[in-house]
Design a protein around this nucleic acid. Structure first.
Length: 190
DNA sequence: TGCCTGATGTTCT
DNA sequence: GAACATCAGGCAC
């Protein structure tokens, strides 16, 4: 239900984040379909020092200030991409970082994209971008349409969701805006 | 099993 | 010129 998703995404990032858990991400590459279920996310907002949007809109972060439901892809540490779902009203810089997904379809293709045998393939923000072949070209993409689509699935109960502080950041470490599915093996780190 | 480090380049100060 | 929302491999215990 696209309208429901749009309505959900227009809310604040810290409210949207837990409700994106369980949503399905579908990627189309040539004739291949890849899909996965979101199991771990983090929220970032412009009033949050750890967010890229904290210092205002720049060439890099302008997507975060755009309409909700688009993809914000950033390049980090010289070699990795990470992807976010833009949330909140237009003009407000907020997004939800997708940190881990559980592969549903095309796991063999994801593994090939990652080029690492044996390791977990989608249990980290840069890993899932590699697995889904997401790069700068998809920055600003509308997630309501292919080649990358986001769809809500079932509603989860609060007991299935764990809320903690975010990881991998150097500022605002005490803000509890990381959410993941309890007991899911694809979560990056518990 | 767990800590430490190198790879690598974009962005902002 | 430094920081960085990361990852994988190496080495020590």
């Amino acid at each position: 239900m696209r309208a429901d998703l749009q309505q959900l995404l227009s809310g604040p990032a810290d409210e949207v984040a837990p409700r994106l858990l369980g949503a399905i991400l579908t990627r189309k590459i040539k004739n291949q379909i890849l899909s996965g279920r979101i199991v771990e996310v983090e929220a970032y907002d412009q009033n949050d020092v750890a967010s890229h949007s904290y210092r205002g809109e720049t060439e890099r972060t302008k997507v975060m200030f755009g309409p909700a439901g688009h993809l914000y892809v950033y390049f980090t540490y010289g070699m990795y991409y990470c992807c976010n779902v833009v949330t909140g009203p237009e003009g407000h810089g907020a997004a939800v970082l997708i940190r881990a997904v559980e592969p549903l379809e095309g796991e063999d293709v994801m593994s090939a994209n990652r080029g690492v045998a044996g390791a977990n393939i989608t249990n980290g923000p840069a890993k899932l971008c590699q697995a889904f072949a997401i790069d700068r070209k998809l920055n600003g993409h509308d997630l309501a349409s292919m080649p990358l689509k986001l769809e809500l699935s079932q509603t989860l109960s609060n007991e299935q969701i764990v809320q903690t502080t975010r990881i991998g950041i150097s500022q605002a470490k005490d803000v509890p805006w990381r959410f993941y599915l309890k007991g899911n093996p694809w979560v990056s780190k518990v």
